[in-house]
Write a protein that binds this DNA or RNA. Structure first.
Lengths: 198, 198
DNA sequence: CGCCGAGTTGAACTGAATCAAGAAACGTGG
DNA sequence: CCACGTTTCTTGATTCAGTTCAACTCGGCG
């Protein structure tokens, strides 16, 4: 038996039996990609979802001024999909790019469609993923509407302590919707306050 | 045969057959609620999804300072659900409130669960709704990260021209993540520019 | 060693918030 | 149908969080 995180993900998280898991694995290709590889470019139709066996991906939009705005990160054990492009079969408005050397399982969208039709457990798991996704998106909207940069940053390091260490600050700033300079100042401010309180 | 929008929604949009539609209708209660009625309060577990037969609902979060932040509106023909609370069976962090006198179909969450198990078409439709929801949430995040107030407002009146007329500006401001005063100034600025260009 | 990208810091600027006060629109009851 | 209070919208003055642009520091790497 192989020992991929992806296998574990399919059996333990998605609760699929070994047969189905093997079947899925045999239809997915595993690729090693270097840092800075594009898995999807804006304007393309997405052909795959990506499971991150190792490494780290980012999904982002680029605005008129050429600035990146990160929608989400995907570290090991995460599934990265552009649901929008995949489901509606539209050109994507996002980029997906690796920000570390990574090992990625490419899951063909047709395979997903097939599974979605064939297997109840797969449907249930997909549903879980969708709802979890919605929950996190909603939280971010509410935060962007109401919370100042400092609070959003504190929440980020709380929620993703691992990412805080691995991801360059520029990217965290982009995720939070502020400039790198501002994030640097927020951090300085926090450090100063922390020092004076002890 | 009754003549509800809800009926039409179930047959034409969700592609359910008449039998199933009738069955659903018989399990849902239709209520007339006055403007300002709470259908859900933060901290409660949601028991129903709501189909808006007539009128207008808002879903919003309240921050520490007591400010409302509107996540979405639901006018006639829309389904309003707190997917988060419903799916994860958690206390909701949102309020749902009518902002016009409205007619609402209350769809019990257990009924939805049943249907989700029993009927393929229902599953497919629910899936469609989830993906559409994700698409709109993602768009908003990207906008909140990158676009200035004026651009967000222009997009709003483009996307929801009907709401622009019906909803008090205060609410639009809250949806856009700015103060009513700022929205008023954005509008003035737009009007001034428009006048000088003609 | 020298370059290069990431992070920091400073100064000037700007979009939006806040606070406060009026004006307009609206619904309700007399 | 008018008078009233309430809510919504506008306008002004001030403040503030975050941006922009530019210069400088630091650590890694060829």
């Amino acid at each position: 038996m192989n020992n991929f995180r992806f296998t574990h993900f399919l059996t333990s998280n998605a609760h699929l039996d070994r047969d189905l898991t093997d079947q899925i694995l045999s239809h997915c290709s595993r690729k090693e990609v270097r840092k800075g590889t594009f898995l999807l470019r804006s304007g393309e139709k997405i052909q795959h979802s990506f499971f991150v066996e190792k490494g780290l991906l980012k999904q982002y939009a680029v605005d008129k001024k050429g600035k990146e705005h990160i929608l989400q990160f995907a570290p090991e054990n995460w599934l990265m999909a552009d649901r929008e492009s995949e489901y509606f079969d539209q050109a994507s408005s996002y980029f997906i790019e690796s920000i570390e050397d990574s090992e990625i399982f490419y899951i063909n969208k047709d395979l997903i469609l097939q599974l979605a039709k064939a297997d109840e457990r797969f449907i249930a798991f997909n549903n879980f993923l969708l709802h979890r996704h919605i929950r996190s998106l909603q939280k971010r909207i509410t935060q962007l509407q109401s919370a100042p940069a400092e609070e959003r940053y504190l929440d980020f390091i709380q929620t993703y302590p691992d990412l805080t260490l691995r991801v360059p600050q520029t990217h965290i700033a982009s995720y939070l919707g502020i400039t790198p300079e501002s994030l640097s100042r927020v951090r300085k401010e926090l450090a100063d306050r922390h020092r004076s309180h002890s």
